[in-house]
Design a protein around this nucleic acid. Structure first.
Length: 990
RNA sequence: GCCGACUUAGCUCAGUGGUAGAGCGCACGCUUCACACGCGUGAUGUCGCAAGUUCAAAUCUUGCAGUCGGCACCA
């Protein structure tokens, strides 16, 4: 038995060896380019090599543009956190920005895509603090401010380039020579100058206010950094406060009177300094002005009347804690109440809370307060209550409202500048405009003061100094502060500024403005930037503030347009988050499908709406990348004797031909033409006059020009989804499925002649144009392939980059030429496509084997169409798998048609009164053919009925545009014709 | 409470007054000399529900229902 198994193995082995040896290999070729192309696209190599070349050759820098009159195009990147790493949101916005930049660069604009990172105060400080604890078991306080910030810098220098490496991986054409960091010297000077000016003008002030305090990060937060979260299982505690009665009344009352207040935070009662009721509340009228003996304290507080209190809410009586609640604070001011802070900055109770509570955490204190009230018999009840609690956006800790000394910006002046800009110019223009413009405007209208100080060490230290008496001196430098104070016994404010304060200056501080320097070449050239691309979560935090500061300090808007992209959700339409572990790492996707496939997937998804991430979608664009690869592979396999040549694409080529024949002086050509003609090979023009172009050639040229025109228009409107769809279908459907197939025979011809070479040049020329159109969104693949095409050189560059080495990223972006849109050829081609599709349809429905060649009769009273079919008979034969077509097959008169075609034929009708018949002697299943024809007739009937109904409506005929009515009439008449023909065919079968 | 968005084919999403679209999936067929990450063919939707405007509504208006956001407040 064992022997038998072994024997089988040996046989199988030799069988495969045999198969391997005798399988024909690729046909030999003289062109070694072919050998370079693998059967499918592997993005790795392209991604590794081209970026380095681009960067090394300085292609990303605006200086590459040699045209002194070039218009500028600029984008500043929303600076990612220096601590950060790339997520899908970045990948999305980066793709859009780079797509736009590459597009404009190819158009000859002097482009700047400015890159940089943000110091991200809280995030970075937290990260390094954690590291310090883990590695050295120390807190920042243990090592002191100076040592700590040194550590952060060291950390930044060591790890801060993670994000920039990832940006390179994405292929972003950013100018690294202008890379910025929010804590760069010049940007820091800008921050100080802005601070000093705003202070001097009275817009920045220091004040004691109720602020949002994060007890974990131990810093104040702005309103925008606090996120509300609903807690369903909250409690509402009803506490009874005994009213202190006058001696004489006390005698007559057996039980002391109490007033009940409700609270969700009982521990704050230790800081109560009043109880408030509505002045019109009759229940409490007699108590107003009386005194309460505040339990658990030995303090007495007043009952006051204030309109703020709503009588029908809760008990109608409110405990007032001015130091721990923003509303209470306001009431406190109105009634001149004491502000008693009972908490430390870590949310433990302080000495003001009383010895019993001092040092307890706020929640422990809460329990204890409730216990004590219960013991005293003063706890009325506890209700279940849904509470909404403010949380720290970063660490999720419940934020405590606290009374604290902080720095604020009064935004009223800058807010008005921004609102005026919107009202007068409609700027910045949001894409999509709805709903963002309104949200932005409404937010500005209700803008409150901005808390800008942070109790951190990492960031821009506030340029304010205090003397021994606490007098404040705001100055750009310590020297200036000393000069102002008249003493050097000064201490600088220990706090730093909100990260967003420096971000707010980003659009101009990155271009060299710093308050000392207010005019730079870059600022003049690139500001205002053209467009900002960002997520909707930072419209308030960043976009609006850039608008305000830019108007105030530079006197112009920071950008014309703002693209707000949607959020990338997970496949279940949930937000991606670290805690949910449902994030998709762009680097994994790059690895699996390639950067280009990922980029074009993201661009396709960018409609402004949120979208669910699906790997299947990238997969389909990976397939698209492979399709491009293989189409190019095919062209290269048949590229001997061919090269990219624009003579073919444009009638201006004919001008060159004439120029060559009769001399320059006789023809009037403008400068633009001259430039174009430089790229044209005159010999090719002579060999291939335009009259030689086939319908397929004219059609693909028309499609190409239409595509280019539409694409540019779509990109102008930031319509990325439509742009990608257009490219996808032009390349796959028009170019691959039809053009390549139509010219395949010609191109792969064994015969070496000028016709073959011309066909090869034509297809490569179209392909080369297509690669350019694709480049902004698929930079690596297109560069890889473009470099391999015969005849690509820096001659194809936009005239602004004539001296740069050949690269597709500097090639001239096809604008499309409306004069090359050829509707006649498109219609003719459409007829051929329709014919072939119809035959294929009949073949499939009648189960005719692919290998089976069939006969085809084409009948049309339209002589022009007859000619077209005849002229393209070889393509029809090939693509519809037809045996042969003779002149008589397409030249049938009505009578002859009816009599000469076998009855046993499958029939079809096409638009333009074209009929086809496929004799199926012995193959035809009559029942099946009857069913097929009936199906088609009934489909046409449905449409016909609807049209008839519409056309018989007098109102429609009278009121609808005449064009429309005519259109429907024509369609109806065609349907009637087709139905009739099919009906006759049907009758003949029965 | 205020403001807003969304609801279209099995799934993910485009479209936005004039005959319903894509990709994926599905069905059938294909070792057709670039590509099975492919080729060909096909099926599938009272465009959330109801009313209104209009000759004509998925598209505009109003109401309702569901989903999801943003802002504000909550003793």
């Amino acid at each position: 038995k064992k022997k038998k198994i072994l024997w089988v193995f040996v046989v199988v082995f030799f069988f495969f060896l045999f198969l391997k040896l005798f399988t024909p290999t690729h046909p030999p070729t003289t062109d070694n380019r072919i050998m370079e192309l693998e059967k499918s696209y592997d993005p790795k190599q392209a991604e590794e090599t081209h970026y380095q070349t681009w960067e090394a050759n300085n292609y990303f820098a605006p200086e590459i543009n040699e045209n002194p009159n070039a218009e500028a195009f600029s984008i500043v990147i929303p600076p990612p956190n220096v601590t950060g790493s790339l997520h899908m949101g970045h990948a999305l916005q980066h793709t859009l920005m780079d797509g736009l930049t590459r597009w404009k660069r190819m158009q000859g604009y002097k482009t700047l895509f400015l890159v940089g990172v943000d110091h991200a105060g809280i995030s970075t400080q937290l990260m390094v603090t954690r590291l310090l604890k883990k590695e050295e078991h120390k807190t920042p306080q243990d090592i002191g401010r100076e040592a700590f910030t040194e550590k952060v810098w060291a950390w930044k220098n060591q790890y801060g380039d993670t994000i920039t490496k990832q940006i390179r991986r994405e292929g972003l054409s950013v100018d690294w020579s202008r890379e910025r960091f929010t804590m760069d010297e010049s940007l820091s000077i800008a921050v100080r100058n802005v601070f000093v000016q705003l202070y001097d003008e009275g817009w920045i002030y220091r004040g004691n206010r109720i602020i949002n305090w994060c007890p974990k990060d131990k810093t104040v937060l702005s309103d925008l950094e606090v996120k509300e979260e609903t807690k369903k299982d909250g409690k509402l505690y009803y506490l009874q406060y005994p009213v202190k009665e006058q001696a004489e009344t006390r005698a007559s009352v057996s039980v002391p009177r109490t007033i009940t207040v409700a609270t969700t935070r009982p521990e704050t009662m230790l800081g109560d300094t009043a109880v408030a009721v509505n002045p019109d509340d009759e229940r409490y009228t007699d108590l107003i002005g009386k005194t309460i003996e505040l339990p658990l304290t030995n303090r007495e507080i007043k009952i006051i009347a204030d309109e703020y209190v709503e009588s029908d809410f809760g008990t109608g009586a409110v405990k007032i804690t001015p130091a721990h609640d923003p509303n209470d604070y306001e009431i406190g001011l109105r009634h001149d109440l004491e502000q008693l802070n009972v908490m430390n900055n870590d949310a433990t109770m302080n000495e003001n809370a009383g010895a019993e509570f001092e040092g307890l955490d706020r929640y422990t204190a809460r329990e204890k307060v409730v216990e004590k009230f219960e013991e005293l018999g003063l706890l009325e009840k506890i209700d279940d209550y849904e509470v909404v609690l403010p949380h720290c956006e970063r660490c999720k800790t419940v934020v405590e409202p606290l009374l604290s000394d902080q720095w604020f910006v009064n935004m009223s002046e800058m807010r008005d500048l921004a609102l005026d800009l919107m009202r007068t110019e409609g700027a910045p223009h949001f894409y999509p405009q709805v709903p963002h413009e309104k949200v932005y405007t409404t937010w500005l209208e209700n803008l409150k003061d901005w808390t800008i100080s942070r109790q951190l060490w990492w960031g821009h230290q506030i340029p304010a100094w205090y003397d021994e008496d606490g007098n404040v001196f705001v100055a750009k430098t310590e020297e200036e502060a000393i000069a102002k104070a008249g003493t050097d016994n000064l201490t600088q404010d220990q706090d730093v500024l909100d990260t967003w304060f420096s971000s707010a200056l980003w659009s101009f501080s990155t271009l060299g403005w710093n308050g000392d320097v207010t005019e730079t070449e870059d600022l003049k050239t690139f500001h205002p930037t053209n467009v900002l691309v960002t997520g909707r979560d930072i419209i308030f935090l960043w976009v609006s503030r850039m608008v305000m500061t830019s108007l105030k300090f530079v006197g112009e808007k920071p950008f014309n347009d703002v693209i707000i992209h949607g959020t990338v959700l997970d496949k279940n339409s949930q937000r991606m988050s670290k805690t949910k572990m449902n994030g998709v790492d762009p680097l994994d996707v790059f690895e699996k499908y390639g950067v280009d496939a990922t980029r074009i997937t993201l661009a396709d998804s960018a409609t402004g709406a949120d979208f669910a991430w699906r790997d299947e979608k990238v997969e389909s664009f990976r397939n698209f990348a492979n399709k491009i690869w293989n189409a190019t592979r095919f062209c290269l396999m048949n590229s001997e004797g061919a090269q990219v040549d624009y003579t073919f694409l444009n009638p201006k080529a004919e001008a060159r031909e004439i120029v060559n024949l009769i001399g320059d002086e006789l023809i009037d050509i403008d400068e633009e033409d001259e430039e174009f003609l430089d790229k044209v090979d005159p010999q090719f023009a002579k060999d291939n006059p335009k009259e030689n172009l086939s319908i397929a050639d004219k059609w693909i040229i028309s499609r190409l020009n239409k595509t280019a025109i539409s694409l540019n228009k779509l990109l102008e409107n930031y319509n990325f989804h439509e742009a990608v769809q257009l490219l996808y279908h032009f390349f796959w459907d028009d170019f691959c499925d039809w053009y390549i197939e139509l010219v395949k025979d010609e191109i792969t011809s064994e015969q070496v002649n000028t016709t073959r070479d011309a066909a090869r040049s034509k297809i490569i020329t179209i392909l080369e144009q297509a690669l350019r159109l694709l480049h902004p969104f698929m930079p690596f693949l297109t560069e890889e392939l473009w470099q391999k095409l015969p005849g690509t050189s820096n001659d194809l560059h936009n005239s602004a980059y004539k001296n740069a080495d050949a690269t597709i990223m500097l090639a001239d972006f096809p604008q499309g030429d409306a004069s090359m849109v050829d509707e006649k050829s498109e219609a003719e081609m459409q007829a051929i496509i329709e014919l072939i599709t119809k035959v294929r349809n009949i073949r499939a429905e009648m189960n005719i084997k692919t290998s089976e060649r069939i006969q085809l009769f084409i009948f049309s009273t339209n002589v022009a169409l007859q000619d077209i079919f005849w002229a393209n008979k070889s393509q029809i034969i090939k693509l519809a798998r037809v045996e042969a077509i003779t002149q008589s097959d397409v030249d049938l008169s009505n009578e002859k048609y009816k009599h000469s075609i076998p009855k046993a034929s499958a029939r079809g009708v096409l638009s333009g009164n074209v009929e086809i018949a496929i004799p199926l002697e012995g193959l035809i299943d009559f029942d099946k053919e009857i069913e097929r024809l009936e199906n088609q007739i009934s489909k046409l009937d449905v449409e016909g009925e609807r049209l008839e109904k519409q056309l018989s409506n007098q109102n429609f005929v009278e009121k609808a545009p005449a064009e429309k009515v005519e259109e429907l009439r024509a369609r109806l008449s065609e349907i009637q014709n087709q139905t009739q023909t099919l009906g006759e065919n049907l009758t003949a079968l029965q």
